[in-house]
């Protein structure tokens, strides 16, 4: 399959933005396919919101272009851009009802009344909020407000949907439910979506691909699986999932002295009471229950590791054998080898 221009929903080409005398976004490249859901993931202050605001049109990049469905929109104002944004704090208009909020974009487009009514009802039905259509934003719960904001974005039938940490104001349980709802809707409508988050769980579970950002740059852009299995930089390996992070080298399933960095996922550390090829003697030092698995601290002659074990959890003090199934080896922050 070749990437024809038709399949590119959003192209960010060398975006650069300077704010307050600092380079906030630094020559950023990103190509999002049509209908794809992409997360911008990164720590606070890395420039996720700034990137999203440039895509939405609230900020004009100092350098670079933004191409939406083949059309250059770099300098077009937000009101003319075929994008719709869901704000972190929802930004619902308190003086309008739920219906009024969702109807606003259509009124602005001067649609006929019956058409507006029909489309608003469809959008509200989609997010299960018909029963609240005459309520004010202040009278409904946070999760419901979030859905109103989503309906207000979807009713515009945008070419691209932009979400800035849309779930951060919800409690943990609701967050999981709502993110699945969003993913469902996004798939059903096949709408190109960019979602900003600093929650890796959220990114890993709902995205087709994830762009991990650091200091205004994209460190890696790949599928959740790839990102986890083959983090291309040390930064990404540390940011995504959990990692045993050891200075040294790696040979024959053992950590040796060296100048590289060895990264070992706790899932890739295997403990057993029987010796298998590639395993070495170890003792269990500490067992910390983590819910559906236990974090086990193990000591081997060459290295101390923590492991995630969910079945046959050993007791602290027991001896056994530990095998390292996979190690990521980095040099100067870049992945050089997977062993």
């Amino acid at each position: 399959m070749t990437d024809s221009p038709q399949e590119e929903g959003l192209v960010l080409n060398g975006l650069t933005k300077i704010l307050g005398g600092r380079v906030i976004i630094d020559n950023l490249h990103l190509v999002v396919k049509k209908g794809e859901m992409v997360s911008l993931l990164g720590p606070s202050g890395c420039g996720k919101t700034t990137t999203l605001r440039m895509i939405a049109g609230f900020l004009i990049p100092d350098k670079g272009d933004i191409v939406l469905n083949g059309k250059d929109v770099t300098t077009i104002g937000p009101e003319k851009r075929p994008s719709a944004m869901v704000f972190q704090n929802y930004a619902l208009w308190p003086h309008m009802t739920v219906f009024g909020n969702v109807a606003y974009p259509l009124k602005v487009r001067k649609l006929a009344k019956p058409e507006i009514e029909k489309r608003v009802h469809e959008a509200l039905a989609m997010v299960n909020l018909m029963h609240h259509k005459d309520s004010r934003p202040g009278q409904i719960s946070g999760g419901e407000q979030q859905r109103v904001a989503l309906a207000r974005a979807l009713v515009q039938e945008p070419d691209i949907l932009l979400l800035d940490e849309p779930l951060s104001n919800l409690d943990a349980k609701l967050r999981v439910k709502v993110r699945e709802d969003i993913r469902d809707l996004q798939r059903r409508l096949g709408i190109t979506t960019v979602i900003v988050t600093h929650d890796q769980d959220e990114a890993l579970s709902i995205s087709d691909r994830i762009a991990v950002m650091n200091n205004g740059k994209i460190e890696q852009f790949s599928t959740p699986q790839e990102l986890y299995d083959r983090p291309e930089t040390e930064y990404v390996a540390n940011f995504i999932g959990s990692l045993n992070h050891i200075q040294g080298g790696f040979a024959d399933g053992q950590v040796i002295s060296g100048t590289e960095v060895v990264g070992i996922r706790p899932e890739d550390v295997h403990f057993s009471t029987e010796q298998v090829p590639g395993s070495y003697p170890a003792t269990v030092q500490l067992v910390v229950p983590r819910g559906h698995f236990c974090e086990v601290y193990l000591k081997r002659a060459d290295v101390e590791l923590h492991a995630f074990i969910s079945l046959d959890v050993p007791l602290a003090g027991t001896s056994g054998f530990v095998k390292i199934n996979k190690a990521l080896i980095y040099k100067d922050g870049k992945l050089v080898r997977v062993a």
């Binding site: 704000f87 930004a91 208009w93 602005v108 515009q156």
Partner: peptide, 20 residues
Amino acid sequence: NLEEAARDAGASKFRVFRTI
């Protein structure tokens, strides 16, 4: 961001001022 949301929804600056 209530004003921005209105711009994003397609309203001109003047309309945002008037309606929001």
